[in-house]
Amino acid sequence: MIVTQAIISGLIIGALYGLAAIGLGLVFGVMKYLNIAHGSFIMLGGYASYWLFALLHLDPFISLPLVMLIMFIMGLIFYRILLAPLSKFSEDLKVNNSLLITFGLIMVVDNSATLLWTSWPKSITTLYSGAAFNIFGIRLTYIGLGGMGLAIVIILALHLFLTKTYFGKAITAIAQDWEAASLMGINIDYTYLISCALAITLAGVAGVLIVLCYSVTPSGGFSWLMIAFIVVTLAGMGNLYGIFAAGLLLGVSQAVGSLLIGSSYQGVIGFAILLLTVLFRPDGIFTRKRKGYAR
């Protein structure tokens, strides 16, 4: 019974993990840049929702579209100012410089957040915050279900977007071979711009759920960045479809694992999974094992 509860809870948390990871995976898959400020953007989404709630009394699920819009605009600016100038560097330098710049961005964003909003954790408590119901002895919170539902909707929307629209197909093409994609008449810079904005928007959505279920702090981005990175590595860098499944896997592993070793060491499970993946399946568990290693 406890195990089933753990599995269900793990799935729900895993959906959030997957959501948190998509943005990171999208930017890396399309542009090959690693945006380690991703965690900070997640926090920013949470803060946006928090302030809309605190100042305008808007329920986070209602203010979600507005938060998404804010994050989308932020993503556009982020790409234009920080990522676009990276295109002049050679392929090897690009990744390294993206790491450096986004690290610098973390410093700017996190410290600005501390200055503006202090480092005290912020979270949103609504009427339905603790509410749950029981099915067959399993406890399900409304927020948990809502989050899971949101994640599923987003995954489906993303899938349709990638397979049915020309823009989505362009993204898939660029992820495989950007030069060939440009020869199709695809405007690489524009695609990068919109993909980045989308990625940041998705990060913001994750942030909204996080500020509801947990809390946000200026430096809280790092741990969510790690989770997103573990999920993306598990799914395989550049493999967008596996991310949701990988998130679920991580969530369930942590939930079940913490039954054995206690919940305060949950993070260790995540790192262990990362280590195992990197050692034995560096291309992700969903990609067929290629000859050689992850180079």
Partner: peptide
């Protein structure tokens, strides 16, 4: 830029085919 040239009516089959 490359995509603009394609729009103008020039299309290239690259060396090594570069299919997706």
């Amino acid at each position: 830029p490359v995509h603009r040239i394609v729009e103008l009516g020039i299309s290239m089959v690259p060396e090594g085919r570069r299919l997706f």
